[in-house]
Amino acid sequence: MKHFLIKLFLILLSTWLCFEVVLRWFDLARYTIPTDQIGNNCMLKPGYSGLYVGGGFGEIQAKFTINSQGWNSTEDFNLISDSQTVRVALIGDSYVEGTHVDVENSIGRQLDRMTHNKTITHEYGRSGANIEDFNRVYNSFVKGKYDYVFVLLRDGNLNATSATFMNCGCSKEEHSSKSKGMIRSMYSHSAVLSYLNINQFLTENVQNMIKKIRENFSYSGSAASDVNAQGQTKVQTKQIPHKENQVDWDFGPEVIILYEKKLLNKHEIIQKIPEKHVFLAVNHNENDVLDFGFDRHWNSIGRKDCAITMFHAIRL
């Protein structure tokens, strides 16, 4: 038994070491972009640039550059008072933040190229942002300063109930738990852990497992609804209560909503916006591949499609 366990330990140890080498050699385990506190907002770390890597084999690789205000953009968002230039703001979540494509191929840059730089587009995108964040971004940075304001609204943006980055700060979350800090430190030292966390959601899965164990030992009700006809178990996840009606619609009349087909039609909120101010974000050719398959974020083609929609909206 002793020999077997030693042998197994050596095998697992050498596997870990080899895996670390493989991941570092092929650059498959990039760390998430660090955040920083700007005012009371949790922003991406200003001045930070690099390569975003996602997917098991690094299928997604894109350059990013964080400007001095904490947004993913090569330029700082300084407004120019040039009557020849149309000022455009785009507010959204990770689809606008755009770390899945090179920063030079973001929606805004593609729009600016389409208009031969007659527009200057600032993209206020932040991963995980929701409608409340959008409202705050609009009121803090955008309102009254741009000729056109677009909000890219997706299904998921309407489900959360409280802001995730605007007015919530980074530090209180990061320093609230010692274990969280320790886990992050482990990730930053081990490519294997980092890889597993990025691609297999290690932390989230461990948390879900602990939650499930707790539920299994304290729960005695029916579980029939958790199993489908094939006997596959669905992971129980806590549903965020849908409180769409409580979301304040605090945008000005100039705001144009871009949305994904079929995603928002069912939401009441879409009825509140004048019809001429609502556009499908992408009107694509059915043969076009707009995303990365396992990751539904748009690729360059998807973003170009969105830029075309904005282009048409501006010409109105």
Binding site: L10, T15, C18, F19, G56, N199, A229, F294, D295
Partner: peptide
């Protein structure tokens, strides 16, 4: 040792992201 290293690395690299992974014969 070599076999286990190759197998484990290939397995981990190939775990699908965001997809169901139940066995067909469970049904």
């Amino acid at each position: 040792c070599v076999y286990s290293i190759i197998m484990i690395i290939l397995i981990v690299l190939n775990i699908p992201i965001h997809s169901s992974n139940s066995f067909i014969y469970f049904q």
